[in-house]
Every structure is written in structure tokens, then in C-alpha cells.
Design a protein around this nucleic acid. Sequence first.
DNA 1: CTTATTGTATTAAGTCATTAATACAATAAT
DNA 2: ATTATTGTATTAATGACTTAATACAATAAG
Lengths: 121, 121
Amino acid sequence: MWKLDADRPIYMQIVERIEKQIISGAYGSGDRIPSVRELAAQAGVNPNTMQRAMTELERKGLIAGHRTRGRVVTEDREMIEERRGYMAKEMIREFLWQMRELGFDKEEILPLLRQEVTDDV
Amino acid sequence: MWKLDADRPIYMQIVERIEKQIISGAYGSGDRIPSVRELAAQAGVNPNTMQRAMTELERKGLIAGHRTRGRVVTEDREMIEERRGYMAKEMIREFLWQMRELGFDKEEILPLLRQEVTDDV
DNA sequence: CTTATTGTATTAAGTCATTAATACAATAAT
DNA sequence: ATTATTGTATTAATGACTTAATACAATAAG
């Protein structure tokens, strides 16, 4: 059973989870992805929901599949690397934006972060 | 019309928006909050939805209101400050976690962030 | 006292995500 | 050829969020 919350659509959370696994290399290029039924069982969701997530991942070009061979992670490593950089940049910008919305100044943020990093997590 | 997306419940997004305004001081302690009807018109949502957001903000103790005088931001400045610190810490941890999920090492993150900060946004 | 403002409650309808239960289609494995 | 696996499609039911349209209650303001 995967950790999913009720705040956002489950299929979206699944898409993001698997996308991150692909980007980080947990799923490598060409790796086979478990069947819809198996993933659904693992995640503890309905097969229809998992199917929807798969369709979305295919639309994004992250995975591809033929009829009965199941699905595999795209061989386009460059695209994955691009996506990794893009997501990191977006994440950083979003983080900085959120912190400024809380009233934190640019200069305050780095020290706070450095402390959290050295404290380890 | 406020910037709201369809991914998550609107009332939650409103709660977060106003909570941030309180925490950052855009709404100060004791400040009066516009009426449900007025806020709903501003945001472009149904009054019921805005009402729900208000109820949630009251539950959190961020605002309080009596019958026909409307609502005001809590006078408990200490609580607001605590909440600001807590949210910042959570935000930082979440950010670091997400970056690690993308496969970024602790050491890589700070330089990336420093660059984004100095480039300004 | 009367009126306007504000919070609150109610009922109904529509949309969307999710679950559930099946069924069918294509193909790899035997 | 037969069977099992996998992807895909369909239909129905449920629940949550949202909009809509009102109505009522309390009280500040006149």
C-alpha cells in the first residue's frame, strides 16, 4: 500500500511518484514496469485508477508499451535528463516563492536551509 | 478573481492563501476580514465555499468572529509567529525531500539554490 | 424601533474521482 | 492450437466539492 493522501486525485499522485522514480533512476531506461493489475494491488487502488495513471505517463512520453508485453521506461535518456533539470528548477522556484509568501527574505532562506541540511534529516 | 486551480479543493486553497497572508503580516493581528459575501465576490467563488474556508480558519484559531461584526485576525501574535516558524520548517523539509527523490544529493542542492537566489526571480 | 449587514443553515443539482465488476482483444508462452 | 497474461473498454454506484438559490438569526447603525 503506497502512501497516498486524499487531498489530491490519487492517479495524479501515482503519476508523480512513478515519474520521480524514472527521473531518479530507480526505474532505469528500458526497465519493464509491472502490469496494471500488479501495480494496482501493490498500491492498494483500483485497477482503473492505475490504468489512468499509466495512460498519463504514456502521454508524457515517459513510458511506452505494446499490447501484451507490458510497459517499459522510455529509452530516451536525454529526455529524462532534461525533465530532471526542469523539475528541479521548478521545485526550487516554487520553494523560494512559498518562503517569500511566508514573509521570509531572500537572505534568510539560505542560512535556514544550510542548517537543516547539516542537521541532516 | 483569485488564482485558483482545479487540482485541489478550492476551499483548501483559500484557507492556505489567507493563512499565508496572516502569517506574513499582510493581514495584521486584529485586522478585520471582509465579509463572506465580499470575499466570495472577490475570489469569484460561491459564498458557501468561502464560508467553508472561514470555518476552517476559525477552527485553526487564526481568525475569530462574533455575530454581525464580521471576523478579525487573532490577537495571539505568539501563535502566529510559532506557526510561521513551523510552516517554514515543514516547507524546507518537504523541499529537501522532494529534491532527494529526484536524485539530487545534499551537497548539490545548496549551490543550485544559491544560483537561483542570486539570479533573482 | 427599523433597517442593513453579517454569519449561518438548508436543499438541490452538477461534476469529477474513485471503486467495483466484468468483458473483450492481442499476443507471448506452452 | 490452447492458455495465460496484459492492456483496454464499459457500465454503474458512491462520495466529495462546488455552485445555486434561498431563508433565517443576531446585532450594529440609523
